[in-house]
Write a protein that binds this DNA or RNA. Structure first.
Lengths: 148, 148
DNA sequence: AATGTGGGTTGTGTTTTCCAACTTGGTGAT
DNA sequence: ATCACCAAGTTGGAAAACACAACCCACATT
């Protein structure tokens, strides 16, 4: 870090410290699709095996995924999302929506069907009033809120 | 990429190719706070100057930010979000919510006030029916939808 | 004349990542 | 019993990315 830096206190940065490295969010994506095995995650993401090992260990250490033994002889494991990991799927949905709109406007690679019967088109709203929410629409307050 | 890999077609992966490298989302965060100057972005993120230059160029090349000359003598630039960049702020909001809940449960570093008067507590909902949406709740369809 | 400012670029290490090949403890087929 | 195969990693060596201080340039200020 440059010695004159004074990074903003920020939950975005703190979350990215846990899941912001290359491949981590794609691992969570695979688990959200129900993929559980090491080799399948390699195959579906393109991560190299050593890096995948290190990402899985870090996600596990931070309570985002869980490793479960499904065979004793030989010892074999599979991976699952924890409740905290399931919550991170919201991030995937919003990233997917942006990519669908801006990079694949005519044919989204994947659609998720919602319980209402329609294809999910995720929108971020304020939990209190239900209307659309977006950073920048109003001014921030708190320890990390400086605007210069 | 390992030669047996066959990465899933996926808008999440495609979006992360544009903004998933270290610092890129924090640059967008700074612009969403109204910070415009190179040195301020360095100061508030902790990115090194050379890497920041490369991130800014890439984000600009992909239409997420815009560089604007605000002085001719000497030549000076400042950075702004494009409409596509503003849409990416949804991702920040959802990352922030996760970090607030899981890493700072008692004192979120930043609060954004919504037009309804309350602090924004972002929720991802289905754009059709308005109810909560989450990847994994139903099964995916499309080219990238395999579940093994 | 000296210092400061904004937006970079350069040089030189250090750290990460990449990828094939290998390992380990087993199973099933010949 | 030997051979191939499987899953879940680990290892070694090369390539790429990153970090950071120092420098640069065209001004403006003191």
């Amino acid at each position: 870090m440059p010695k004159d830096a004074d990074p903003r206190e920020c939950s975005v940065a703190d979350t990215l410290d846990l899941v912001g490295e290359r491949w981590s969010l794609l691992v969570i994506r695979e688990l959200s699709y129900g993929v559980r095995r090491f080799d399948q995650i390699v195959h579906n993401t393109g991560a190299s095996r050593d890096i995948l090992t290190s990402r899985l260990r870090k996600l596990e250490a931070n309570g985002i995924i869980r490793r479960e033994r499904y065979s004793d002889h030989p010892v074999r494991y599979e991976y699952h999302l924890t409740p905290a990991g399931v919550e991170l799927c919201d991030v995937l949905l919003v990233l997917m929506r942006w990519g669908d709109r801006h990079l694949h406007p005519d044919d989204p690679p994947v659609r998720w069907q919602h319980s209402c019967g329609e294809t999910v088109s995720p929108v971020v709203v304020c939990g209190h009033c239900g209307k659309e929410a977006r950073v920048g629409a109003h001014s921030p307050t708190g320890r990390g809120a400086r605007t210069s």
